[in-house]
Amino acid sequence: MSLKAKNIFVFVHKRKIIDGVSVELERGNLIGLIGPNGAGKSTLLKTLAGVQNRATGEILINGKLAEQLSAEARARTVAYLPQSRRTEWQLPARTLVMLGRFPHRQAFKAPSAACEAAVDRALSAVNATEFSKRSVTTLSQGESARVFLARALAVEAPFLLVDEPTADMDPYHQIHVMEILKNVAKSGVGVLVVLHDLTLAARFMDKLLLMKQGQIVDSGAPKEILTAGNLERVYRISALNGKEGDRAYIIPWSRV
């Protein structure tokens, strides 16, 4: 099973945002999408999720054109968590997570036992069971972000696209969220994550896609991508390097 994009072009207000990108996500992958501001990372994620219209190119879900699937079938296959994670209404956390079951539910019917069970699994995957009855607006930022992640997990789609899951979080919660995503990938879900934090990207991702000006300029294992040359060319920074066990890490250090 795979989620494939072939030669995607996206224009927003006549500006070219995605410039001929091809990507492939397979079940069990944990792939980081990195690149400087304005590189087109979020737009690429939205396009894969079917939220953003593309000008040309194909998106194949398990070998089928995305357009050939019904909206519900597509929603059941590809889950998407956008960067903005807020709601106007003071919904209880559990109710919010249940919204993720929408593509599995029938209109005007109470949620099935399977849906309830999926919501329980999603809540426990993000350690949110204990505050599941509280209103999301009363939760701390870290708690609320985990509830929104649980909403995306509750879809139980084979592919999960997440936009900057660690934004505005303290290190404890950043690491917590990355561990959750790692577990999700281990359970067989293909996970594609937009990340700004290169240290987290090096520490947790199996593979990185490096974007610049709407194109993917390099891809591979973190240590192959986060090289001094790439960092200088794409990010215009230099970084400190180190090793912990067999895992290389980097710390962004200065502008060049």
Partner: peptide, 11 residues
């Protein structure tokens, strides 16, 4: 209530 983008992604 989750926003337009999430709504579209949910079908």
């Amino acid at each position: 209530s989750l926003g337009e983008e999430t709504a579209i992604s949910l079908g």
